[in-house]
Design a protein around this nucleic acid. Structure first.
Length: 222
DNA sequence: GCGACAG
DNA sequence: ATCTTGTCGC
């Protein structure tokens, strides 16, 4: 873990060279949603990963892990705060998913190293960033209906797509993280949308990552 | 120097 | 992210 902000940025500058933004994968049958919630009073980061079939969006496996938070929230350095918990949860997975969908940015980041790109490079797996708000870049608001899009631009380049995932609700910010193109990132996200604002992988992971008062029935039990 | 700023 | 009740809309 980096001990300073400058050290963390240096790590990002180094890792960004590994990013590949073109489709580079074989099978794409399973996708895993990744999200992290917080238990403020206990100083814990609670990560959850939900693997499902891309074909029918049926949950296959769900794991969780809580670890002490050791890095503060600093815009642009979110990965250093959340990835430790994610890697811990990953150990509990029986089957490795073909692709990861992370709650946060892919390359739509000041140094093109959002948490989805960071995780993708660490695991050397395809990864997509699905954020609920903008970190960096300029864009025009897309039309009000589901499926409408606009480009997220920065430094004269497209770093993401602003996507209306549901009628009349704030749009999502999609960006590739690793081993897939901008187009594929959006195509896959669209295929994971149902009636909600968030695509299924992230939506289910989000529910599990929130610290619950008591135990709830498993997502896989039904 | 002044704002902006994923979760 | 998290803190929180009511309220609008299907």
């Amino acid at each position: 873990m980096p001990k300073s902000e400058s050290e963390a940025r240096a790590i990002q500058e180094k890792l960004r060279r590994e990013i590949r933004l073109f489709d580079d994968f074989d099978t794409l049958e399973t996708i895993a949603g990744v999200d992290v919630g917080y238990d403020i009073e206990n100083g814990l980061a609670h990560a959850s990963i939900v693997t499902m079939s891309i074909e029918d969006l049926r949950p296959i496996e769900a794991v969780e892990a809580s670890v002490p938070v050791d890095f503060p929230y600093i815009p642009g350095l979110l990965a250093f705060r959340e990835i430790p918990a994610v890697l811990d949860a990953l150990d509990g997975l029986v089957t490795r998913p073909d692709l990861f969908m992370v709650d946060g940015q892919g390359i739509a980041h000041p140094r093109r190293m959002g948490i989805a790109a960071h995780l993708g490079v660490l695991l050397n797996k395809p990864a997509i960033g699905v954020a609920k708000s903008r970190l960096t870049g300029r864009y025009d608001m897309p039309g009000p209906h589901k499926g409408e899009q606009s480009a997220l631009m920065a430094s004269g380049e497209q770093i993401g797509v602003v996507l209306r995932s549901k009628d009349e609700v704030n749009p999502l910010f999609i960006s590739p993280g690793h081993r897939l193109s901008m187009k594929t990132a959006v195509d896959i996200t669209l295929r994971c949308l149902t009636r909600f604002k968030l695509p299924e992988p992230t939506r289910l992971a989000d529910k599990l990552s929130k610290v619950r008062p008591t135990k709830q029935p498993s997502l896989l039990s039904a």
